[in-house]
Design a protein around this nucleic acid. Structure first.
Lengths: 142, 142
DNA sequence: CCGCTTTCTGGAACAAATCAAGTCTTGACT
DNA sequence: AGTCAAGACTTGATTTGTTCCAGAAAGCGG
């Protein structure tokens, strides 16, 4: 995705186009599942000095606008990704916390419906697969 | 579950039986999906003075022993529950963060298997349904 | 009952995230 | 082009959730 596309995306969502936000979006496009701290460092590489607060603000604004999605598996810090709308899921390594995408077989949210919703109005089913990544599985086997 | 049962559970897991641990387990039995801070307050109600550190230690020890399960939906603090082994899932209210249990139709982990596991060795599929609880749905409608 | 080991206590430290006040920038409207 | 208000950014402090540490206390096998 080019810088112009990113700018267009921002405008369409009614957000102002700023150097910081473009940088955040670009970084997330290039590095999915990035935690906040890494986003801050990457943003500074491509956009020079940016306060951590600006990154936090940008991430929240982008999340509210639906341009990025926030995920937070148990035991991890918040991570962000730009793949939204396709209702895909994640597989997380118990050992090293690596995350990989898993396409949803159904595709549309909610792809699953619970047996008993307890009166809740459910709009999304988020699936997290837990296991070991290839590297950690190999290390554990030896 | 009685106090004696709780003690037995601890012993079977090779953990020492302490007033603090019994209190933590009992509190979790009575109040599922409780966050750490609430656990601390409840434990102090039933067991008198207990340091917050003891509660953190107990929660970690119990989690490692498999007696309690830690869940942490995006945007929430860590919560704990005693239902383990039946691979049930959760429905979370986007508005008030209330949590309810949802029985798994399959029952055994992993109840789902991804289309492409990327080489990961998957042992569990955790499903979180997102939506609005009955109270918040009613409030939103009015 | 004794002593070893684990656990608990109390305090401090730490990291992640949020809040607050003031300054600067964007983009719409003369 | 110039002005202006809403919104974004910066700096720095604060809150929140969690962990680390050293010494005291308690559980449990002998």
């Amino acid at each position: 995705m080019s810088g112009a596309d990113v700018e267009e995306q921002l405008r369409e969502s009614g957000l102002r186009v700023t150097r910081q936000r473009v940088a955040v979006l670009t970084v997330l496009h290039d590095h999915p599942h990035t935690d906040t701290d890494t986003v801050i460092r990457q943003v500074r590489e491509v956009a020079g000095d940016v306060s951590h607060q600006a990154v936090y603000d940008a991430l929240r604004a982008l999340t509210e606008a639906g341009l990025v999605r926030r995920i937070q598996p148990t035991g991890s810090v918040a991570r962000y990704e730009v793949r939204v709308g396709d209702n895909h899921h994640h597989v997380v390594c118990r050992s090293c916390a690596a995350i990989a995408d898993v396409d949803c077989a159904v595709g549309e949210a909610p792809c699953l419906t619970p047996s008993d919703s307890h009166g809740y109005l459910i709009d999304q089913a988020e699936v997290t697969y837990w296991g070991l990544c290839p590297e950690c599985a190999a290390a554990a086997a030896s």
